[in-house]
Design a protein around this nucleic acid. Structure first.
Lengths: 222, 222
DNA sequence: CGGCACGTCGTACCGCGGTACTACGACCGC
DNA sequence: GCGGTCGTAGTACCGCGGTACGACGTGCCG
């Protein structure tokens, strides 16, 4: 049994969701909220498995409410629903920590499937929006180290040299690398020199950039 | 009517898909392929709306085949299917240009819904995988101007210093920065020193990493 | 066996990078 | 006007990083 909190400023809309969700045995609407502030409060109070969140609401909107609910650290997952598929909403909602984003024209069974998935800790995005998410994904997310599209220069590196390159990418000095790898600094220098030559970098800074460009290092935005 | 090319090295698996897809009026299997090379050839020949692509196959795998099909520029969309949800597969498939990624334990109606969505130009990802995609999405995709959660250290930088930091992130030497900014190298050194102090970096390498971590520099994976 | 790739280590040299300190003009706000 | 910030610039110093050598042991392959 999945408990659901329905958040929407329109009573009729809430009624529709309640009828639908209570008509199947697996879900139960345990509460309703008409705006963001109420959603945050009732989520803390009722601890529903899933919060069905509308975006456009008077006062605190669904995005901000989502942010606060997620920040609160409760186990409630937020599934955002909207009538429009505006980019800003999708982005903002996902960055706010929503577990899903669906359009209100979703078919009932898909909504139920979505709620089920979100309650299970998975995530759902309306197919019409997934397209755009994917486009950005492939644009921005760095190549996985295991990807088959690799720079031939990477293949020319020996195992040890690749380790060295990763270490360089972490910003370690030759001395630090020597300590952690338990070898002499001369050895590290030799390796570094070979790495630079192979990847065509003039100094370790270029090597750091190379490492980021090729997925050997990844940004930590924390 | 959506035309589908089924690609899988196991005849029985292909048979199952054919039975399912031909049992509903909206889809029709127009061909089968047992490996990547055949998939590429038949896609060009049959021009199906959707290519149902298995990942693990002898010879050319589904990822490489996807890459070639997408590169060919035909209107065929590729929906990748796999038994395992290994990270590398998902990443590689999406980067290769796949329009979707589903697990083989998908329920028939979900597969049909997925094919429908992909044929319509949308995209689908199995909920169990969407979670991880989203996590990376929020990690890597830059925030829209407005909802950025930025490091306070960034705000402490002056405009000029931020420019300097970007230049450092590109791997430029002090001399190069001086030339491009048309100032003396001493000036650049002064700026660099201040930047390092403000962001808490011990050398320009740490600054490069900082730049990547905070979106002032971005990986170029080509 | 002989070669080769690889990883290890050393010495010597030089230049860029980073630090410390000082300094000056432009601009802004009190 | 006076203090603060900012961008500019210089000098002096030192150390890390990178290069150019040479060298040795191990393991693998033809």
């Amino acid at each position: 049994m999945t408990t659901v909190l329905v958040v929407d400023d329109q009573p009729l809309q809430r009624y529709g969701f309640r009828i639908l969700l209570d008509s199947v045995p697996e879900t139960e609407v345990v509460g309703e909220a008409a705006h963001g502030a109420e959603a945050v409060r009732k989520t803390a109070e009722l601890r529903p498995d899933v919060v069905l969140m509308d975006v456009r609401m008077p006062g605190m909107d669904g995005i901000e409410a989502t942010r606060r609910i997620v920040a609160a650290g409760d186990r409630s997952r937020v599934l955002v629903l909207t009538t429009f598929d505006l980019d800003e909403y999708v982005h903002a909602a996902l960055r706010a920590g929503a577990s899903g984003f669906l359009l209100k024209d979703v078919r009932p069974e898909e909504l139920l499937a979505g709620i089920r998935a979100v309650a299970a800790g998975d995530a759902v995005i309306a197919p019409a929006l997934t397209r755009r998410i994917l486009d950005e994904f492939t644009r921005y997310v760095p190549a996985h180290p295991g990807d088959s599209v690799r720079d031939p220069r990477l293949g020319s590196l020996t195992e040890r040299e690749r380790e060295i390159l990763v270490a360089i990418g972490r910003g370690w000095t030759n001395g630090e690398i020597a300590t952690r790898f338990v070898v002499s600094e001369s050895t590290v220098k030799t390796h570094v020199g070979r790495v630079l030559a192979k990847i065509g970098a003039r100094d370790r800074i270029q090597a750091v950039i190379f490492a980021y460009d090729h997925g050997l290092a990844r940004p930590n935005s924390d």
